[in-house]
Design a protein around this nucleic acid. Structure first.
Length: 575
RNA sequence: UGGGCCGUCGACUAAUGGUAGGUCAAGUGCCUUUGGAGCACUUUGUCUAGGUUCGAAUCCUAGCGGCCCAGCCA
C-alpha cells in the first residue's frame, strides 16, 4: 500500500472522479462480480539486474496505485531466476527507489523463495506426463522449434518414460550434468502458432551462485515457469505487465491450470516511451559501462537515481505517471510532458534565490564605495509562508551576460546603453557605458548609475521599466559549479540509427555543460545536498551529491520556460 | 509471411451505440518586482472503404499502417 498517492488517486476520492483506464475497469468489474471476494492483490516484480528507471515508475504507480485505490495490497517481488545477471547491489537500489517514490510494499518476496515449491510442482508435472527432460542442445532446440511460419517438430526425448524423467530431473538438480546439457520442458504443442507453447523450457542447468540461495541450486526456473506460479502463491489477483508478454499469457495460464492453483490474471499494458530517451536496462547498462555517463545516477540518466540526483521530486514523477494514463497503444510521450510536471511541483515549493551563471561585472558609479545594504527579498511568491530573506547589495555586482546587449535586438527589454532596468528586489539602474577588452573588443564591465529613490523596486514618480534582472553582489558572492543538462540523445527516438551504427551514435555531445565560476547569493552557501531552489529567471537547481561547503555543486533540474528565447529564435528564423 | 496486439488533435489520453472532452505542446491576449507563475481565449483529431442502425470513434466486413514473438533472458 502506498502512503502517498499519485494525483490520480487521491485518498477518499469517489471512484467515479478518478481517470479511468482499462485495467481499472477490469478491477471495478471484478469487484462488482465479487470475483475475489473484494480482494485486490498486486505485485511489482523487478528483476534485480539493473537500476529502476522512469518506465518502472509508471508500473510502480500502477501496481501500487490501483491496489491502494481499492484497499488492496502490493508486494515487492524480485524476479531473481537468473543468477548470472542479478546482484544484491540492484536489489538494494530498487528498494531505495521504490521507497523514494513514496510507496510501501506489504510483502517483500523473491522468486527464489519459491524454488523448492517450483521444483515440487515440476515433479508433479513430470508425473502427470506434462513435462520431460530433453537432451537437445540449445542449437538443436532452436532448430526443432520451427519458425514463425513453419511448425516445429517433436524432440526425440519427448516421450521418455515418467520414471526416466523423474530420475534425470533429480540428477539435474543434484548437479550431475554440465550447463546446457539438458533442460526440463513442458509438453504442450510443437505445432502451436504461438512459439511460447512449443514445449517451452522450464528449467535450465546453471552452475552459478545465486545472490540469495548461494550454491544450493544448479538448476534454475525460467521466467515463464516461475512468474505465474509466484503470482499464484501470493494470491495476486491482477498481475500487470507490459505488452511484450501478451504472447506468454497462454503459457502463464497453462501452468496455473495444469497445477490447479490460484488463478492469478495477467493484464498487459503499454510500456512507457519517452522522446530523446532510452528506457532499456541493457542499453542503460551499456552507457554506464562504456563511460558515456558518469554512472547509473548521472543526472542525464532516466534512472530514478539519476532523475533524483537531477532534482526531480517523487511527487512530480507520480503526477506525471498519473497524467500519461495507461492503455495498449504503442506511443511515445514528449519529454516536455515530464518537464511540465517538475516545473509545476517545484514552482510551488522551491525557495527562490539569485544566481548568476555567466557573470558580467556591473559597477554602479554613484553608489558609495564600501557601502552595503541588506535588501529584503521574497522567498517564494507562490507561498507567502516561505517568508523573506536578506540579500546584500553593494557598488559592484554581477549580472548575467545574457541580460546585457550593447546593441539590443528588437523586443529585447533588458539592459543596454542608456536603458533603465530593475534589479530584482533592488534598485532601478541605468546603463551609462561599457568597458571593453582592448584586444578582443568584448564588453568586460558595464557602468551604471542607480536611482536611490527606487529602493525595493518601485519608482515614486511612477515610471516603469520593461525588465527586471537578477544580480549578485560581487563582494558577497559564493562561487559554485553548475551542471547544465540537455537531452542525452539528439534524436527523438534514439534507437533509430544509420546503417551499421548503434544508439550511441545518437548521443548528444552537448548534453552536459559544466559552468565553473557561477556566482551565488550568500544565503546559498549553506545549501544542503539535495536541496532544491529556483534560481530566479533561470530554472530549478538542486545541490548535487558531490557538493561540499566551500565547493558547491548544483545541477540544473529544468530551465524555466523562456519566452525571450522563443522570440529570439523566431527572429533568427525570419532571417 | 504464422500468431498476438494496437490505430482518436503535433504528443498522451477520455467518451463503454446518443454533445468528440482533458492534459502537454503550439499560438493570441491579459496580468506581472522572475520575459517565471497565473488567467482567458484559439488552432488542430476518430487510418481507409463499405455495411448494420433513427443514430457509429464505439458493432460487422474488407483493406491499410504500426508494434511484439523463432533466449537454456526477463
Amino acid at each position: 500500500m502506498s502512503a502517498s498517492n499519485p494525483q490520480t488517486a487521491a485518498p477518499g476520492a469517489p471512484a467515479e472522479a478518478r481517470p479511468s483506464n482499462f485495467i481499472r475497469d477490469i478491477i471495478l468489474d471484478d469487484l462488482k462480480t465479487n470475483k475475489h471476494a473484494g480482494r485486490v492483490q498486486t505485485r511489482f516484480p523487478p528483476e534485480p539486474n539493473g537500476y529502476l528507471h522512469i518506465g518502472h515508475a509508471k508500473a510502480i504507480c500502477l501496481d501500487f496505485g490501483l491496489a491502494d485505490e481499492f484497499g488492496g495490497h502490493t508486494n515487492l517481488r524480485f524476479d531473481d531466476t537468473n543468477p548470472s545477471k542479478e546482484e544484491t547491489e540492484y536489489v538494494d537500489s530498487i528498494m531505495e527507489d521504490v521507497k523514494w517514490l513514496g510507496f510501501h510494499w506489504d510483502g517483500l518476496f523473491y522468486a527464489s523463495d519459491y524454488f523448492e515449491q517450483l521444483y515440487e510442482w515440476a515433479v508433479q508435472l513430470i508425473k502427470a506426463g506434462k513435462a520431460y527432460v530433453c537432451d537437445l542442445s540449445a542449437d538443436e532446440i532452436r532448430e526443432y522449434r520451427g519458425t514463425l511460419t513453419k511448425p516445429g517438430k517433436d524432440s526425440p526425448y519427448r516421450n521418455r518414460a515418467v520414471e526416466e524423467n523423474l530420475g534425470l530431473f533429480e540428477r539435474m538438480k543434484a548437479g550431475e550434468f554440465p550447463d546446457g546439457s539438458r533442460t526440463l520442458r513442458a509438453k504442450i504443442d510443437m505445432a502451436s502458432p504461438n512459439l511460447n507453447m512449443r514445449d517451452p523450457v522450464m528449467y535450465r542447468i546453471l552452475h552459478a551462485s545465486h545472490h540469495r540461495t548461494g550454491d544450493k541450486w544448479c538448476i534454475y526456473p525460467m521466467y515463464d515457469y516461475a512468474h505465474g506460479q509466484s503470482d499464484s502463491i501470493e494470491r495476486v489477483t491482477h498481475s500487470m505487465c507490459t505488452l511484450e508478454f501478451e504472447d506468454h499469457r497462454p503459457l502463464y495460464n497453462w501452468f496455473i491450470q495444469q497445477l490447479g492453483i490460484f488463478p492469478s490474471q495477467q493484464i498487459e499494458f503499454d510500456r512507457l516511451n519517452l522522446t530523446h530517451t532510452l528506457l532499456s536496462k541493457r542499453k542503460l547498462l551499456q552507457l554506464v559501462q562504456e563511460g558515456h555517463v558518469s554512472g547509473w545516477d548521472d543526472p542525464r540518466m532516466p534512472t530514478l537515481c539519476g532523475i533524483r540526483r537531477r532534482g526531480y521530486t517523487p511527487e512530480a514523477i507520480r503526477n506525471f505517471c498519473g497524467a500519461i494514463g495507461v492503455s495498449k497503444t504503442n506511443g511515445s510521450i514528449e519529454l516536455a510532458m515530464l518537464e511540465h510536471f517538475v516545473r509545476e511541483d517545484l514552482n510551488k515549493r522551491a525557495p527562490r534565490a539569485m544566481a548568476v551563471l555567466r557573470p558580467l561585472k556591473v559597477v554602479i558609479d554613484n553608489y558609495p564605495e564600501g557601502q552595503v545594504e541588506e535588501l529584503e527579498a521574497v522567498n517564494n511568491p507562490e507561498d507567502p509562508a516561505a517568508g523573506m530573506r536578506k540579500v546584500p547589495f553593494s557598488r559592484v555586482l554581477y549580472i548575467e551576460q545574457d541580460d546585457f546587449r550593447e546593441d539590443p535586438p528588437k523586443q529585447y527589454h533588458r539592459l543596454s546603453p542608456g536603458r533603465e532596468v530593475r534589479l530584482r528586489a533592488g534598485y532601478f539602474i541605468t546603463c551609462t557605458g561599457v568597458v571593453k577588452d582592448e584586444r578582443t573588443g568584448e564588453v568586460v564591465e558595464v557602468r551604471c548609475t542607480y536611482d536611490p529613490a527606487t529602493r525595493s523596486g518601485n519608482a515614486p514618480d511612477g515610471r516603469k521599466v520593461k525588465a527586471t534582472i537578477h544580480w549578485v553582489s560581487a563582494a558577497h558572492a559564493v562561487d559554485a559549479e553548475v551542471g547544465i543538462y540537455d537531452n542525452l540523445f539528439t534524436k527523438e527516438d534514439p534507437s533509430q540509427t544509420d546503417e551499421g551504427k548503434d544508439f550511441t551514435s545518437n548521443l548528444n555531445p552537448n548534453s552536459l555543460e559544466v559552468l565553473s565560476h557561477c556566482k551565488l547569493e550568500p544565503s546559498l552557501a549553506s545549501a544542503a545536498v539535495g536541496g532544491r531552489y529556483q534560481f530566479e529567471r533561470l530554472g530549478y537547481f538542486c545541490v548535487d551529491l558531490d557538493s561540499v561547503p566551500g565547493k558547491l555543486v548544483f545541477n540544473r533540474t529544468v530551465a524555466l520556460k523562456d519566452t525571450w528565447a522563443k522570440i529570439e529564435k523566431g527572429q533568427r528564423g525570419k532571417g
